[in-house]
């Protein structure tokens, strides 16, 4: 918060796998190139590991402009293509208010209070949409 300089561009945003959910935590001021790299990394991670959900924790993000908004929307679109749900978690109230006035909607994305809430949403949904024996049916 009191950091007087923009954070050095993190070339790598951690993408964590929890069961069949990817958890991505965004922090600080994301440079455009970092956001684009992230979009590519997540796309590849979803394709590689066939997850059912992606949680993007933005509680550490101070602003979402139309560039980051587009990156989030494209991640969600890519996830949906691969049958995964995207949940954006922990959006700060000031960011949410600003997004509305900016006129941005985040299409194809659900929102959750925090990452834990998001994981709960995805787990409940997987439990209710999965037939009882679906786990055994693949060879």
């Amino acid at each position: 918060m009191s950091d007087p300089y923009p954070r050095a561009p993190s070339t790598h945003v951690p993408v964590l796998r929890l069961g069949d959910v990817l958890l991505v935590t965004l922090q600080g001021d994301l440079h455009d190139s970092t956001a684009e790299q992230l979009q590519q990394d997540i796309g590849e991670a979803i394709a590689r590991s066939s997850v059912s959900g992606v949680v993007i924790d933005i509680s550490g993000v101070e602003i979402v402009d139309s560039f980051l908004g587009r990156v989030l929307a494209e991640i969600a679109a890519k996830a949906r293509l691969l049958a995964a749900q995207t949940v954006v978690a922990g959006m700060r109230p000031a960011v949410a208010i600003t997004l509305v006035e900016l006129g941005l909607t985040l299409p194809g994305m659900r929102t959750a209070l925090d990452a834990q809430d998001a994981l709960g949403m995805l787990t409940r949904q997987a439990a209710s949409s999965r037939p009882a024996h679906a786990r055994q049916e693949s060879p």
Binding site: I63, R92, I97, T98, L102
Partner: peptide, 11 residues
């Protein structure tokens, strides 16, 4: 909130 709006507009 006003800071966030102004920073977003500036971005």
């Amino acid at each position: 909130v006003e800071q966030t709006k102004l920073v977003t507009a500036a971005s």
